[in-house]
Amino acid sequence: MRNSQSTLTLSIIGFGAVGQGVATIVQNVPHIKVVAIADSKGVARMPDLNDVLARKRGGQPIANSNLTALDVIRTIDHDVVVEVTPTNIQGGEPGLTHVREALKNKRNVVTSNKGPLVAAFDELTQLAYTNGVALRYEATVGGAMPIVNLIRDTLAGARVLDIRGVLNGTCNYILTRMAEEALDYDQVLSEAQDMGIAEADPTYDVAGIDTACKVIILANAFFGRHATFADVDVTGIDRITQDALQLARQRGFAVKLVGDVQELTVSPKLIPIAHPLNVSGTLNAASILTDTAGEITVAGKGAGSIETASAILSDVLSLMRDRT
C-alpha cells in the first residue's frame, strides 16, 4: 500500500445503517483514518466522525465539498474503499461502478453490498487480482456471522463440499414467531414491518431473493460456479401457513428457509428441532460440510448496523495485517 506504513486510510461510500456503524466503530481503532464519507447527496471530506454522525442522525446534509462519491474513489489517494450503498440486484448499481473504479485505481474494497458481487463476481475478483488489491465481502453473507473468512482462512486446510444456511433474518424471524406464537403469516409480517425487521415491500426477503444472492456469492467464491441469479431455484416463505408449522412441530421439525450453495437452491426445509441450523428469531446460521473437518456450524446476527460494521472492520483489519 502506498500510504504511510502505520495508518490505513478509508473512504466510506454510503452512509446509512451500515456506513454509520462503520464510522462509529472505527473511532476506537488505532491507525485507521477516514478520509471521506459519501451519501447519495454529497461528500464529507476529512470528516470529524462524531460531527458527521450527529449531522446525519439529525437529518442534516453531511457534504462539505463539491466532490461526488466517484471523485473520492478515483482521485483521493487512500487505501480502502468501504462500499456500503444499497443492494441493487438488477445490475448492481451504483455499487458496481464504485467497486469497479476503486479496483481499477488500485484501491482495496471492503463491502457489505451484494449487488455488485451478484452482478459481476468473476469480473470483479479478476479486476482485483490484476490490480494487486483485495476485494473483501465478509459482511455480504450472514452479517456479523463469520463465514467467508472462516472458510477462506480458518478452514483453508479442508475441502468444502457444501454450505447450507439460514441466511435471512427477516424470514427466520417470521417463521419463528409463526411457529412459537401460533400466529398467521400476515400478522407476523406486519409486526416485523413495524419493528423495522421487514421492509415495507418485503418481497426481496420473503421471496428468497436475498438468500439467493448470498448463495450466489458463496457458490462463486468457494465452488467456482460462475452462477448468476437465473441459476438459482428459489422458493420463498410466503405460502407457509401457521398450521403447517404446527404439523411439522408435532413431528419434531421446524421449517426454515434454507439456501443450499452446492445445489443452488433456496427453499423452505424441515429441520429437526435439535439440529444446529434451527436458530430462532433474526439469527442466521450456516453449516459447512468439509471433507476432513466434518460439518461445522456457525450462527450469529445476520444484520444490524454495528453487527454488520463489525464484519466490515474484520475485513479492514485483515487488510492491515496483510500489509505488514
Partner: peptide, 11 residues
C-alpha cells in the same frame, strides 16, 4: 402444492 422436504442428513 408447496413441497417441503427435510434437510438431508449428511453421512
Amino acid at each position: 402444492l408447496l413441497f417441503i422436504e427435510p434437510l438431508d442428513e449428511r453421512g
